[in-house]
Amino acid sequence: MTHWQRGVIVVGLVAMLFGMGVHYGAVEADRWPYPHEDTLAAEPGAHVGHEVLLFGTVTDTNPQADTATIRVESDHGAFSLTVQAFDAVVERGGVVQVLGELTAERTVDADRIVVVNHSGSAAWYKYGVSVIGAVLVLIAFFRYWQIDTDTWRFEVRRNG
């Protein structure tokens, strides 16, 4: 296989991946079994009374009243929601999933809260540990493989 053929195949696969990204972006809101955050951002009043599953960043909590405010990102900008029956312990900056009924335009009565990150720093823990994972992969890989600089391909190390 020549460099050209290899290049054409790689470009073709990258184009295919991009096409999948566009397809997913176009179709996801219809496939998601609940009103999608993009839909809620565009038409806040259209889904009152429906069940929703949303991911959001906690911006405020009120433990006395069992409520919290979360910020939900969407393609049409971020919007804030008040979550009632918020029974989880989360700091500001934490990330939660909220399943519940949309009782007003921007209010959810939660049936279940899942804490994804307890705080903003929990996200940094995740990224930090992930970077260690990526470094481990690179070290392990290049212990057994090397780049042949004549052909620009991975080849087995002779001593590997």
């Binding site: 696969l13 295919m16 991946l17 999948m20 990204g21 566009v22 397809h23 997913y24 972006g25 176009a26 996801e28 393609d75």
Partner: peptide, 17 residues
Amino acid sequence: LPFSYTPVASIGGVAVV
């Protein structure tokens, strides 16, 4: 165009990558 990275973390995207 609409776009999402999510397919990369799907079986179809893994097959292509």
